[in-house]
């Protein structure tokens, strides 16, 4: 049993509810005890373009609040994971930055601490829970379904800080999918970007990034895509129809699942326990193959 603070960030608890529902239902069954962490707000990731210190401050805050609770952080979102690990590194390396942030936090009665372990779902499941343990719990293997793992940029990069996955040759996500009985494989855009951060600048170009990615995945004959980042999900799943219209290519269509949803299906949880009716991409075909119905 491992005990972690469930750090939801922004996008998951305000919009990407299926990730929260599936994580809350799946992780405890794998021996992960989730402790609520409601006092933690945004990690500051979206603020770095406006002011880098605002980003650093927000993550320094989360690290310090977690340290007060004396528990490791589990980040579900790639952006949160990158922020917390990057800011932890920056603060440990830069004494004057640390002093500056400590002063800002002291004004609000928070003592700056960075001695906190940070996990993402992918490395927590792969490195701590372990592939074998997950394998043992599988009741309905995802046999015959070829799934493209899509780690997302900020599970891999920047690689000058500790990352959940290898930045050049990510394998953990695929190992987890294989443990569920699914087929996995290579496609050239695996380490590519979903384009989410481009949305405020131009929806049109961001949708072209999505279209290109789905096209690449389809060229390599995958039946579905799986991600563990709410931004990637939002782009590939919710914006899939818009991406198809943007480039006028009818073939842009593929089911998209959270990793936690696929684990849930394989260990026998119901679609409702996994928030599957919230997926907007065409997931029905894959569910049918598994003998599961959305309404059931």
């Amino acid at each position: 049993m491992v005990k972690v603070l469930l750090y939801l960030g922004c996008t998951i608890p305000t919009k990407q509810y299926a990730y929260e529902i599936s994580a809350r239902n799946v992780l405890p069954r794998l021996g992960v005890e989730l402790v609520e962490f409601p006092e933690a707000g945004c990690c500051g990731f979206p603020l770095k373009g406006i002011n880098k210190n605002a980003w650093i401050y927000m993550s320094a805050r989360i690290l310090s609040l977690a340290s007060m609770r004396n528990l490791p952080i589990l980040a579900l979102c790639n952006g949160c994971d990158t922020s917390l690990r990057k800011i932890k590194t920056l603060l440990n390396e830069d004494e004057s930055l640390r002093k500056y942030m400590a002063k800002l936090l002291a004004n609000e009665g928070i003592e700056l601490h960075t001695d906190v372990e940070v996990y993402h779902v992918v490395d927590l499941l792969h490195d701590v829970v372990g592939v074998n343990k997950i394998k043992e719990l599988v009741k309905k293997p995802l046999t015959g379904i070829k799934i493209a793992s899509y780690p997302g940029c900020h599970l891999l990069r920047p690689s000058d800080i500790p990352r959940p996955e290898d930045s050049v040759d990510p394998r953990k996500f695929d190992n987890l999918l294989s443990a569920l009985g699914a087929s996995v494989g290579y496609y050239p855009d695996k380490g590519g970007c979903c384009g989410a951060t481009m949305l405020p600048y131009s929806a049109k170009y961001a949708l072209r990034v999505v279209a290109g990615k789905i096209k690449n995945i389809k060229e390599f004959n995958f039946d579905a895509v799986s991600t563990s980042c709410p931004y990637c999900m939002e782009m590939l799943d919710a914006k899939q129809d818009a991406a198809r219209s943007e480039v006028g290519d009818e073939s842009i269509s593929i089911p998209v699942f959270y990793l936690t949803q696929l684990i849930g299906l394989a260990i026998g949880l119901s679609p409702k326990e996994l928030g599957l009716s919230l997926n907007l991409s065409p997931v029905e075909g894959v569910l049918e193959k598994l003998g599961v119905s959305l309404s059931g």
Partner: peptide, 30 residues
């Protein structure tokens, strides 16, 4: 947070919120 919690639509146009999904309410940060 970057947004207040919003209502989302399923493919069948059902409306879901944190509340209707039985997710705990969000509180302000520390």
């Amino acid at each position: 947070r970057i947004s207040p919690p919003i209502e989302v639509l399923s493919k069948e146009f059902e409306i879901y919120s944190r509340e209707s999904l039985n997710l705990p309410p969000l509180v302000r940060p520390y």
